[in-house]
Every structure is written in C-alpha cells, then in structure tokens.
Design a binder for these strands. Structure first.
Length: 806
RNA sequence: GGGCUUGUAGUCCAGUGGUUAUGACGUCUGCUUCACAUGCAGAAGAUCCCCGGUCCGAAUCCGGGCGAGCCCACCA
C-alpha cells in the first residue's frame, strides 16, 4: 500500500540508486551487442569542472534526461555518456593559490590539478544524480585522461597531415596579466573613462604645400593610446572626407620619432569620431590588425607579453603601458604637440577571467587553418537541423564573420600538450609519432631528422575547445573501434546552450567535419539561459544565484524537472520559485490520486477473458479517449522537443482525471454500480499515465508503477512508451456531461447551496441528432449521482443549454 | 552600430490563420464532501505594445514604429 505521505527525498534517492548502480542500471547503458534496435546517440555537454552545476546546467541535463528516457521507452538503443571538460585556467589559478605551487613545477602542478578536478567531478556527479539525470556512467570520459589526450593529439596530427597546422608570429589577443594568449570568445567588454588626446602630426616638408585656412602645416589626430605612437605605421582618413581629401597619399612625421608615415584613404573610417583621422599602430585594436594586413603595413611590436614597451620604442622601452602613456604625454606636451585632451567613455576588451585589459601582441602561436574552410563548413552544416531553427542563423553569421584562423595554443600547464616540435634551424614543424601518444614534447628530447639539431618542443597546451570539440568522436570510439564508430557516429543529438554556439558547436562541426568528412550530429537542440528570480543573469555580485541543491532538497527532483519542462528551446528563462512549488504540488496530487485508485482496486482482479470494453460506460470511454489523445500528443511533442507538453499532462491529470473523472466514478465505486468497468478504467488509465509521465517525473512514476506492477520491471524499461488504447474518438463528446455537472455546481454556488445538497431537477436542451445529446441520455445516472440531482429531463430542441431547479 | 529573439490579465507563461484566447501564481467568494486544505467549487481580471497591410477571417502572416533581452562588433 502506498503510504499517506510521499517522502520524495527518500523515494528519489532509492530509485536513483537502482538506476545508476542497482537492479535497473542496465536499462541506462548502451547495448553494444544489440544489432536490432535503432541507435540514438546524445552528444552531451561535458561541463567545465568548476565544482558545481548552475541552474543552466540543470535545465540542460534535465532535457537530455527526458529525451534519453523517452527514446529508451520508444525502443531505441540509447547512448548517453557523460564527460567532463577539465583543463582550464580557472583550475590552474585555484590550484596555484591553494597549494602555492608554481607553474614551472610542471608535473607536480599538473598532478595537483588532476586531484583537485577529481574531487570537483564527484560533487558535480552527485548534483546530476539528485536531479534524476542518469547517463551511461560506464562510458564516462575526462578531457585530462591519457586516452583523451591521445585522441586530441592524434586529431592534431591529422590536421597537420592535411596542412592545416602552422606556427606563426601573429597578433593575438593577449592577457599580459595572465601571461597567455586568449580566444576572442574569452574577451568581454567593459566601459571605462579614458582620455582622448589630440596630437599634432606635422606634414612632411615636401608635402606640406599651402594648407586650407591656416598656415600651420600639421594635422590633428585623436588617440586614446598615445603610448603606441612609436608603433604608428600609417594614418587613415575617409576617402569622402572633404577636410582631408587633398592630403591622401602624403606623408606625416610621427611625433617623438624620426619616422614618417603615409596618409591612406579607407572607407571604414568614422569621420565623426575625433578628428576623423586614425592613427594605425601595431597593434592597438582589432581594426589595426585588419588594416595592417589589408594594406600590408609594417609591424612594429611595441608591447611585449608582460605588458611593457619593447626595445623598438627607444627611450620608452621597459615601461609599462600606463607609465609609457604618462611619459609620452608629458614629452608631447613639452614639444607643444598636444592640441587638447577630452574625457570620453570607451569600451575596452578585458579578459573575462581576470578582468584586466587585453592587448594585441605578436607572439609565437600555433594555429589551425579555418578561414579557408568557411564555405565548406557553411555548406555541410546545412544538413544539421537546429532546434529552434533560427539558431542556425546565429551560427552562419558567426562563420561568415570570422576574420582569422584559430589560435589553438595557450601558455598554460593544465591542458593537452601540443604534439609538435619545431626545428629553428630548418624552420619547420616536426610532429610527434602516433606511437608516442599521448605525449608531452617538453618531456621528450628529439633531434631534427634533417639537420640533427635538437628540436624545440611545443611548450604550449591546447585551448580547452580543442579538447571539447571532438566529443562526438570520443563517444563513438573513433580511434579504437571502427564497428562501434560506424554504429554511433554521427550523434543523433547535440544538446547545448546558445551562448556557446560560436565556440563548442562551431569548433565541433569544423573539427569533426575535417576529420571524418561527415557532420558530427544530425540535430542540435539549443537551450536558453536561466536568469535569477529578479530576471537578471545570475551572478555573485547581484546576489541572485540560486543553487540547484537547495531547490532539489526543498522541492524534489521531480518538481524541478517539471519546471525545466515549462520552457521552449532557445529562449532564456527566469527562475520562478512558485513554478517549482507548483511542480511539487502536482506530485502530491498525483500521489493522492494513485492512493485513491489503489484503495479502490483492492478487490479488483483483471480477468483476461472478460471483454471489459463492452461494459465501459461513455464516461469511461471519454477519459480513455482523452488519454489516447495525450499518448499521441506526448509522443509527437517529445519527438519535436516540445517539453511544454508536460503542462498538458499536468492539466489532464489534475483536471480531467482527478477533478472530473474520479469524481464521476466515486458513486460507482462506493455503491457498486458498474464498478468493474470503473476499476478496469482506473487501472489502465493509471498504467498509461505513469508511462507517459515517466520521462518527465521519473521517480514518482517508478514508485507508483512498482506498487501496481508486481512483475518487477521498471517503468523506464525499453519499449515501455504506451501505444494508444484505441477508443473511438467520438467519446470525446461526453465532455458535455462534465459541462452539465459544472453548470449544476455553478447553480449551487450561485444560490449558496452546499455542493452535497440535492436539487430537484435539471433540464437539458439540445438537438436530438447531435451526438453529444445521445451520450447525455446514456449518462443520466452519472449526472444524477455526481451532480446530486433527483430528476434529469432532456428536451430535444434548441441549442445546448442547462437549467437547474431547486 | 549589426544580427537574432521577444512584447498576451497585477505577475509568469502557452498559443504558429477559424466560435467565447491556455494554464499557473496572486486577488475575491464559498466549502474540512470519507485520495488530497500541498485540497475542492466558483468569481473578477486581457484595447493579445502601437500603426498600417494581406485575407471572408489576424494574438498568429507581412511592413513600419516603440520597448525589452541575448549574441556580435566597437571609435582609433
């Protein structure tokens, strides 16, 4: 017997254990030997091992779990592994701080990072488990594992074979504070106040000529970065700018230097900013980089990786950027070269981790060619179905607007080593041997096969997206098992957040496409972000962070899961506690309904030989026909990732089943009128409901199912998704009986009668040929009993109408 | 500045061309009716952002405007 109160914490824990390690754990594992069932592979996102999940993860993993359970119940052989994105700067920073270990103790440092990460994984795994997420843990992977390194490094060797890896001096976004190159995606922008300096640039004597209005032969350039004046390589004006048209092609002297640079016309110059003249430096910002390449301008590396000016900057060499700026302004002032200064607010790029300004610095970096493959990526990715479809546009826009190749090297330690050597003598890259993988080139000395000189090992590690962008290959055993690979690649589904379309989705599509000539997944399901209860992005500084653990303990996993199913793919969402509370109350309601049914089935035995369908009343057929509708709708909805079908299920259970059907059959159960048919209906209704609800609220569905079904099978078993019962849809018209009872209730309410009070008569009007009226005739007893009415009169005329008499 | 999304009761959200617009929270009224007061019955509350267009018919499709959010870019 089901106890009066549903102890969700205890029940949820019990079934989580059975699913993950207990008697049902096989259900959740991919069956390699099953050659009959269709395979469904989910390329789950490996979260970065920060130590805890946030609500966005929770939403993401609940959706994945709903789909995986649904697909299993539909008979698919589901591969849903879970991995961890482990190697990253945040871990390094924390380990550095906690153990006071320096990065030059490479091996010890790495070991501490690994230990630290393992602890964090355990926490996050626990959090996944308590929301009922059950991936196939037997296929867990970590990007820091030797096998994972091997796959990443192997893939890079393959890229090298295709001529797509190169090493180059290249301006990259560089964080002088962290001492590392960073990806565009790791930069965020902030507004700060800065000084716009208007500086005189004197025209070259030969070019000076007669100037427009005054005799002074200089132009004024506004810059926020005077410290880069030493690296000034050109001056740009807009071709249509009347003020400067006559200066195009002429030269100006760069103040504080003995160099002169050309004035070039460029239509992207904003005439309205500053004086409409741009000083191009190597490198002040991304525009500079673009233009220097476009016009093939000289590169003067003014800033080094420590954020200090280089020897090319003469007397300013060795000064930090801020110091140099101050000093150069002083010197310009001394020469009377500053016309004026203005305070302006400016958006500056800062490193998202440390919040310090980012510089462009020319350093040795490793690259993967990607710009050459834009067209191929765009073409092949058209075969991927995006949910929602408009997310495809975001992807395409990103690909089309990419400006340069992918910098894959990072000057860090906890990462996958780049498996290459470089011969300074021959200026050439020497890849590691496949048999040596996984390898850390810094730990293995090698000589150049051509010249015999000692090679320089690549000391850098890979960008973490290099690790995570081959997950579809990892989960399909790309390197180790061809048969398995053919069965499980490409993935059926890639679920992920929209904020990482330009990183994880893009890099995965690019890498896997290059390596396999196939797209990595057929569909990509995009989920939105979860904002705090105040509608703002959750952040510590706003104090609006909600920890998943708190709400799971308070409301239960099944309640949280219902909340996660109230959103449509792609859109961001606000965490409203009342919504989760509703989920909890639904669980209570469902529990009590199940108890009621259980109580009334005590003396029921399902006799296989009896044809119950003939005994069923129209009311029974009505609820079963409605249930059929829900079975159809739920199946279709989940095929299309419409999780909001949960709401329809809630309404069906709460209002149609509990409020109406259960109330309509009480008299039959209590007074033994057509009782068998009611019991039969309740029995199959409950069984179907549990199966329908199982993907969404798996714990309570399992708990109730186990009480009714004594054969020991799990509700989540393969192929368990219900088929329609097969009730004629015309019985949906019995809904009018419910409408009549509602009218009676309203009459009683309006007249301040108790609901239990009997009234004398109900008159029902309606055309005789209408099917709904026919059913009403058959349901007179239901109306009398459930509505507590002495007499029911039916008039075969006029429009459908109900009148009550006291 | 560019792209995308979005605007529906006091609040949140569903609705993707067809009677009277879904549901929840909140509010108000009544009810301890033997599954459930974590409940039941009922009520009030919406110019479906504004303007125009297509259509027999628009919350829904199209154009414009205004507001909001996200992503991207960003002033030298």
């Amino acid at each position: 017997m089901l106890p009066k109160d549903y102890n969700f914490l205890e029940v949820e824990k019990k079934w989580q254990n059975e699913w993950t390690t207990g008697k049902y754990s096989e259900i959740f594992k991919f069956n390699e030997n099953d050659s009959d069932s269709e395979v469904y592979v989910i390329d789950t996102p490996p979260p970065f091992t920060s130590g805890k999940l946030h609500m966005g993860h929770v939403l993401n993993f609940i959706w994945i779990d709903v789909i995986a359970r649904f697909k299993r119940m539909k008979g698919f052989n589901v591969l849903c592994p879970q991995g961890w994105d482990t190697q990253g700067l945040p871990t390094e920073l924390k380990v550095e701080q906690k153990y006071k270990v320096r990065k030059n103790e490479r091996e010890r440092f790495r070991k501490l990072c690994v230990e630290w990460t393992k602890e964090f994984i355990a926490n996050m795994k626990f959090q996944m488990t308590v929301i009922g997420y059950v991936p196939d843990w037997s296929r867990e992977y970590k990007t820091m594992d030797p096998d994972y390194w091997k796959a990443v490094q192997y893939s890079l060797l393959k890229f090298y074979e295709k001529g797509m890896i190169y090493k180059a001096k290249h301006p990259v976004h560089f964080c002088p504070s962290c001492g590392t190159a960073i990806a565009k995606a790791e930069i965020e922008y902030t507004t700060r106040e800065t000084t716009l300096n208007f500086i005189k640039f004197y025209l070259d004597a030969e070019d000076a000529g007669p100037s427009n209005s005054n005799d002074e032969n200089f132009i004024t350039i506004a810059t926020t970065r005077p410290e880069l004046i030493q690296a000034s390589v050109a001056v740009f004006v807009h071709p249509n700018d009347e003020r400067y048209k006559n200066l195009i092609g002429k030269f100006v002297h760069v103040p504080l230097t003995d160099r002169k640079v050309k004035i070039i016309a460029e239509s992207e110059v904003d005439m309205n900013f500053g004086t409409g003249i741009v000083m191009i430096c190597s490198f002040g910002d991304e525009h500079d980089v673009k233009w220097i390449y476009k016009y093939n301008l000289e590169v003067i590396n003014a800033i080094n990786e420590y954020g200090k000016l280089t020897n090319l900057c003469g007397i300013y060499a060795g000064l930090k950027v801020e110091e140099a700026r101050k000093k150069i302004i002083e010197d310009l002032n001394a020469k009377n070269s500053i016309v004026r200064q203005e305070k302006i607010s400016q958006n500056v790029g800062i490193h998202e981790r440390c919040k310090k300004p980012v510089e462009f610095i020319s350093t040795d970096q490793w690259f993967i060619k990607v710009i050459d493959f834009k067209d191929k990526i765009l073409e092949k990715s058209k075969n991927i179905m995006w949910i929602p479809d408009y997310m495809e546009k975001r992807f395409d826009d990103w690909v089309e607007n990419m400006d340069w190749d992918w910098v894959i090297s990072r000057q860090r330690v906890f990462g996958t080593p780049i498996p290459f050597y470089y011969c300074e003598n021959c200026s050439k890259i020497i890849p590691a041997e496949i048999s040596e993988l996984p390898i850390d080139p810094t730990l293995k000395e090698k000589k150049c096969p051509d010249c015999g000189k000692i090679l320089s090992p690549a000391g850098d590690v890979c960008d973490c997206w290099v690790d995570s962008s081959i997950t579809p290959l990892i989960i399909s055993k790309w390197l180790t098992d061809e048969k398995y690979f053919n069965k499980t690649y490409p993935s059926s589904l890639r679920p992920q957040g929209h904020e990482i379309i330009r990183t994880w989705a893009f890099y995965t599509i690019f890498r896997c496409l290059t390596l396999t000539e196939q797209i990595p997944f057929n569909k990509i399901l995009v989920n939105g972000m979860v904002f705090g209860p105040d509608g703002k992005k959750m952040s510590k500084s706003l104090g609006n962070v909600v920890e998943p653990n708190e709400i799971v303990v308070k409301y239960g996993a099944d309640a949280v899961r219902q909340w996660a199913c109230t959103f449509v793919p792609g859109s961001d969402t606000t965490l409203i506690m009342k919504d989760i509370d509703y989920g909890k109350r639904f669980i209570t309601k469902l529990w009590n309904a199940a108890r009621f049914i259980e109580m009334n089935l005590q003396d029921y035995e399902h006799n296989q030989n009896e044809n119950f369908e003939n005994l069923l009343t129209p009311v029974d057929k009505w609820i079963l026909a409605k249930c059929d509708g829900m079975i159809e709708k739920t199946g279709q909805a989940l095929e299309n990732f419409n999780f909001t079908i949960m709401k329809d299920l809630q309404n069906f259970v709460w209002h149609d089943v509990c409020d109406n059907y259960l109330e309509l059959v009480k008299y039959r159960l209590y007074e033994n009128i057509n009782k068998n048919a009611a019991q039969y209906t309740l029995d199959i209704l409950l069984r179907n409901l549990m199966k329908l609800l199982a993907p969404f609220i798996p714990h309570i569905a399992e708990e109730i199912e186990q009480n009714f079904n004594k054969d020991g099978g799990s509700v989540h078993g393969k192929g368990n998704f219900p088929n329609v019962i097969g009730i004629d849809k015309k019985y949906l018209n019995v809904e009018n009986v419910v409408a009549i009872i509602e009218a009676i209730r309203k009459f009683k309410g309006d007249n301040k009668f108790k609901l239990s009070e009997e009234i004398s008569k109900v008159k029902i009007y309606g055309k005789q040929d209408a099917t709904e009226v026919k059913f009403i005739e058959e349901c007179v007893i239901d109306i009398k009993k459930a509505g507590k009415v002495k007499e029911v009169e039916i008039f075969y005329s006029g429009v459908f109408k109900v009148e009550c008499e006291r």
